[in-house]
């Protein structure tokens, strides 16, 4: 499918979705190997749609969180706020952030401490 200059908006979206589909497919294959299940292509497609929509929502959330804080830059605190309603997820993301900060040394500073 040759991308044409005229139909940029649609074809860009389609190509982004294809890229996401591919990435999700790899993740699904990996998980499937571990768990002993397989997934139908339709499953992967439906999951891709779900993730796509979820990323759109996430993106808007992050933007609004940052704006609410008077910033024009989304930072890690905003992302952690995404998980505010799910304790387990919150703990997971926080430990992940701690982990990457430990690895990067002084990396992000200590703005998250609360």
């Amino acid at each position: 499918m040759a991308p044409r200059a005229g139909t940029d908006d649609v074809s860009d979206k389609e190509r982004l979705k294809s890229a996401l589909w591919y990435a999700i497919g790899k993740m699904v294959d990996h998980e499937a190997l571990i768990s002993g299940h397989n997934a139908t292509p339709q499953f992967i497609g439906a999951l891709t749609e779900m993730v796509w929509t979820h990323i759109e929502n996430t993106s808007l959330d992050l933007e609004n969180f940052a704006k609410h804080a008077g910033r024009s830059m989304v930072n890690t605190d905003d992302v952690l706020l995404l998980a505010r309603r799910n304790e387990g997820l919150d703990a997971l993301l926080r430990s992940f952030v701690d982990h990457i900060r430990a690895e990067h040394g002084s990396g992000g500073g200590s703005k998250r401490k609360s």
Binding site: L62, S72, V79, L82
Partner: peptide
């Protein structure tokens, strides 16, 4: 609007 690298990794 921009997004920081660490924030992106966390996302």
């Amino acid at each position: 609007m921009k997004i920081g690298k660490e924030a992106l990794t966390t996302t």
